[in-house]
């Protein structure tokens, strides 16, 4: 205990003294952010200390208060970013670099948060179906009865999708839709997004909702030969709302209110939207870059263009609570 406590205590104190260091609190998994951070350290000389958290990141920063070592708060899902701002855990950042690189709809007007990458809530389709276009609304169509796979209705990705549906069609229709999707499920809602590809390969279902970048990860072969088998059984389709585009979500970051290393924090954000880093997002993580000058991975692009939905991210964030309650109301996970 002494060893750990003192060791980490000392590293923290040393960190406060040496300016070339910054502390990152992230809900993005270490495996995803490490390549980016390594590249940042290599280019800037700033060391990054990280802690990977899942639930409770805002609670932790809040509790640590003005002594919090957190400089950058990184998370996925617009709801989580807005939540950080609402709790007063972030500070506004004025940066020409960030404003130039990120479209206005992908950052907070006051500079409280910035999107770093985009992901589409996409459709995986059994290859032999030959389907290339799809509306989210169709998921509830009885045609697909017993043929749909999806993860838990309470997962932030699905909550955001439902929230966008509410924004398009209102709560009552969203409820009917969600109940319809539930009726079409081939199996209990659950598992991960990659299980959708696996289950389609296994013939358990024909279509399923999952994030776009998993297709790239599986196709890259980094997950091993089995996952290549799964992904080769499916085709990626970017569905749209009948009166809109593809539902997208973001990963993003904010500078913590009490950031002890504010300059380094801004430097990290600026680096993350640079073409160099955006290329890593696209090529290593297969996400859509937020900086339009960077290219989407060829593994994703081969499935066609993606047109983001017209509903703003903040509107999606507003409907999040209602969406989560709807999932419980229709018993989506039962």
């Amino acid at each position: 205990m002494k060893h750990l406590a003192l060791g980490t205590a000392l590293s923290f104190l040393a960190g406060a003294a040496a300016a070339q260091e910054l502390n990152l609190y992230t809900t993005r998994e270490p495996g995803l952010v490490e390549p980016l951070l390594d590249a940042f350290t290599a280019s800037s000389g700033i060391e990054v200390n990280t802690i990977f958290l899942k639930e409770g990141l805002p609670e932790r920063v809040e509790a640590e208060g003005d002594r919090s070592p957190a400089d950058v708060l990184m998370t996925v899902d617009i709801g989580n970013l807005v939540d950080l701002v609402d709790r007063g855990l972030t500070q506004p950042v004025q940066s020409d670099v960030l404003e130039a690189a990120i479209p206005e709809s992908m950052r907070d007007a006051d500079g409280q948060w910035f999107a770093l990458s985009l992901r589409a809530r996409a459709l995986y389709v059994a290859k032999d179906l030959g389907l290339t276009e799809f509306h989210y609304e169709d998921l509830a169509d009885p045609e697909w009865k017993g043929r749909v796979c999806i993860r838990s209705g309470q997962h932030p990705y699905n909550v955001a999708l439902t929230a966008a549906y509410i924004a398009h069609h209102g709560e009552a229709e969203a409820e009917a839709w969600l109940a319809g999707v539930h009726d079409n499920l081939a199996r209990k809602a659950g598992g991960g997004d990659r299980d959708v590809a696996r289950d389609i390969m296994g013939g358990l279902c024909d279509i399923g909702i999952a994030n776009s970048y998993y297709v790239g990860q599986m196709l890259s072969g980094n997950g091993g030969p089995e996952q290549l088998e799964w992904v080769n059984a499916i085709r990626l389709v970017f569905p749209t709302f009948e009166n809109g585009g593809t539902q997208i979500n973001i990963s993003g970051a904010a500078v913590a209110k009490h950031a002890p290393n504010r300059d380094e924090a801004v430097a990290l954000l600026e680096y993350l939207v640079s073409p160099e880093a955006q290329k890593i997002y696209a090529e290593a993580n297969f996400e859509h870059p937020v900086n339009a000058t960077a290219a989407v991975s060829p593994l994703i692009v081969q499935f066609g263009d993606m047109t983001p939905d017209t509903i703003t991210l903040t509107e999606v964030a507003r409907n999040r609570k209602a969406a989560s309650e709807l999932a419980e109301k229709v018993g989506f996970d039962n």
């Binding site: 495996g31 990280t50 609670e59 998993y214």
Partner: peptide, 28 residues
Amino acid sequence: PATLLLRPLNVETLATHLYGEAARGTYE
């Protein structure tokens, strides 16, 4: 869960590592 939420910067345990991979979907 408590380890995940309460550990200091730069400290990973096997359980948090495992969770990081599982949350990302890279079970392998």
